[in-house]
């Protein structure tokens, strides 16, 4: 890319490089919240069928690593309600 810039004296190669970096970032950022929202909704719906919990005591975190990403779901469930649900 730098070699190309060396031969083409204009500013267009700079524009191209800036756009490629920016859009790679924005496309990822644009997709992430949607995916998390969908995952959150569907996971909570499944768990909600069996146990009762407070929707605001739920934490969902997506960590993107280089080769692996981790999804952490942390749901606080009151003990008495869990016992009831599991016994039923």
């Amino acid at each position: 890319m730098n070699l190309l810039r060396f031969f083409r004296s204009g500013s267009a190669p700079v524009a191209r490089e800036r756009l490629q970096i920016l859009l790679a970032h924005e496309r990822r950022a644009g997709n992430q919240p949607d995916l998390l929202a969908i995952l959150r909704e569907e996971i909570l719906a499944v768990i909600g069928r069996h146990v009762t919990f407070e929707p605001d005591k739920v934490q969902i975190k997506l960590d993107r690593g280089k080769s692996v990403s981790t999804l952490a779901v942390d749901i606080e469930i009151p003990n008495n309600r869990t016992a009831g649900a599991l016994a039923a």
């Binding site: 083409r8 004296s9 204009g10 500013s11 267009a12 190669p13 524009a15 191209r16 756009l19 490629q20 859009l23």
Partner: peptide
């Protein structure tokens, strides 16, 4: 002309992006 001089994104640049 501007694209050939490197002053404007070329068609290929835009298509690739």
């Amino acid at each position: 002309t501007a694209a050939a001089r490197g002053e404007m994104l070329t068609i290929d640049d835009v298509l690739e992006i």
